[in-house]
Design a binder for these strands. Structure first.
Lengths: 188, 188, 188, 188
DNA sequence: TATGAATGAGTATTCATTCAT
DNA sequence: AATGAATGAATACTCATTCAT
């Protein structure tokens, strides 16, 4: 059954938006771009989202849910340091995509912070959830400085994503990823 | 006294562009915005830059020169680890600006990578110079893994700039900055 | 109890249209506005009216019938000058609504005359009926210039409605209404 | 010399807007309509007016100035009742235009009152000036009820304009105009 | 060179009307 | 008939770029 139900189309639009916004950025992406990617007539988009901003917001939420799912899957692993390293592994696996378009969360955050609407807050909560989860892992490892470590880890990931993207070199992500793995091992 | 010579106007435009592009981002900034900031009539801009892209490129170069100057000033310090920590200190001092607008190099790199013109390469060379300089310092410290450490340092800075900006919290930069200082000390 | 028969829904739509068109004007009113006011799904409207124009036409007719009813009620009064003064009284009673939205007949006439469809003729017939009735009263008062007087009376009402609406001042209608009462008395 | 100066074009636009808005109404008139009437490319309109509303406002002001000029010319006449009758004469002379499009002031007032922006206030001040002037004339005739008479006169004009337009019958304006002349004479 | 003005391609958004179920 | 959804033709507005003087 194709996604032709109402809910299905909303999701299809949000999903297409996640993809296209990651690839092109918010400002360079037109509603028509997203509509085309979702194979939906432009006029129809407005049946689901009153404004472009609302669609972007939905995309942010959809992206946040993807991230939550990914994080949730890591909970299967028993040891917190293994969970963190699995996260790193995921990032490394995505290095080609990152080299092309950067980290979706980071590029969105960077771009949306230039705006005065509430979208910058929406992406901030996604980033926050990632940070909180990492903090939880470091805390489970018995670290009193869990928050600081979480900030360091996520910052390192965001930074290396930016460099990987800037130099279009997936190797950077691989190299820094391995370094971070060793760093995590050293903390246990 | 404002400079009204040809070269002077070009520089004034590029300088104004550096500032405005940092604050508003490339896509949200109009030529009129930059012209106004430089106090130059819009129509006149085209005698100095054939296209908006060329002006952005000049802004990137001007920003690169500012960075080179800053780095050059660090060479006064005798010990490489002191130079690196002075760099960190400068970043920490800028934390309020970073909380508002992010790192100028990073936000430009992030935004320009979404484009297919050559501007992404221009900003990459600026980032490269920063990376090379940091690598030089670590090498002077006798580290064989100087490149890897340089990547880690610059990534950490870019990442914490992004988080500082996303959460509009200068404290994040201060906290991570201190952590990086300790890290550098540990490498000596 | 709302009527869900075919004729009932048609009337409900036309009635809602009368109200909403009076408040918002024809051009600013969307089909969705009217459908919402009538509590009928938009898509369903087209089973009762092929086009928006037809719905507006039905609204004009419904408004005409309301006016006929109002006029019919005045026939109870034995003396024609009393009937005319009762009409005036009704207008004065409505002055708050008029201050907000103007005379429904007049505002419709004004707006529809800008259009080339037949709707301007539809509202003209409503106005005509009012004029004819007034003429009849003046004739019953024995006036040979009954048509002229009728035109003067209705014009005065339309004009004072416009001023009352323009200045949002119900007092204007009250003042002019009393003046017109004295005028009618002077004609007997 | 053609009106190719900056001020000239602004005026040309406002003037064209007065005409087109009178003929088509505000809502039915597109910016392109006005631009075409002024023989100016659409994009260029925005060099002179930031929004359609601002252009409409300029049109209202331009119309107000036309009215002021017309009224000013009446001041040549020594007797106030002659001034009022000259005003009536002017209205009667315009009866064909009125039959087609109504009174420009009245139709604008009627339409703009349906909106919540400030334009309804702008047209109200124009109407107010007309009212004040008429009041002044009746006062000069020694009438204590000058305001009431002014309201009655302007209302009569607005109302007969509406009827003239609704029935597309210039004869109505002529008939009522003559009646109003006699009425003015009766007040002296 | 300098400058205000002109141009036109593009973008978000609205809405009457139609379609599919 | 009923209804949510689909469609596409407008329309206001923006902005890089070019023109005229």
């Amino acid at each position: 059954m194709t996604d032709s139900t109402r809910a299905g189309k909303r999701e299809r639009l949000a999903g297409a938006a996640v993809r296209v916004l990651h690839e092109q950025g918010v400002e360079k992406t037109t509603l028509a771009d997203i509509a085309r990617a979702a194979d939906i007539p432009v006029g129809n988009v407005y049946y689901y989202f009153k404004t472009k901003d609302q669609l972007v917001e939905a995309a942010i939420e959809a992206h946040g849910r993807q991230l939550d799912t990914m994080i949730g899957a890591l909970e299967e692993l028993p040891a917190p340091q293994d969970r963190l390293k699995a996260l790193l592994g995921g990032w490394i696996d995505q290095r080609d995509l990152t080299a092309r378009y950067g980290c979706p969360t980071g590029t969105l955050a960077s771009e949306l912070d230039k705006r005065d609407d509430g979208l910058d807050r929406a992406i901030a909560t996604v980033m926050e959830r990632l940070l909180d989860w990492a903090e939880g892992q470091f805390a489970a490892m018995g670290r009193a400085d869990a928050r600081e470590l979480a900030v360091a880890l996520i910052a390192a990931y965001q930074g290396i994503s930016l460099l990987t993207n800037t130099f279009r070199d997936p190797g950077l992500m691989a190299m820094e990823g391995r370094r971070l793995e060793r760093w995590i091992d050293s903390l246990a």
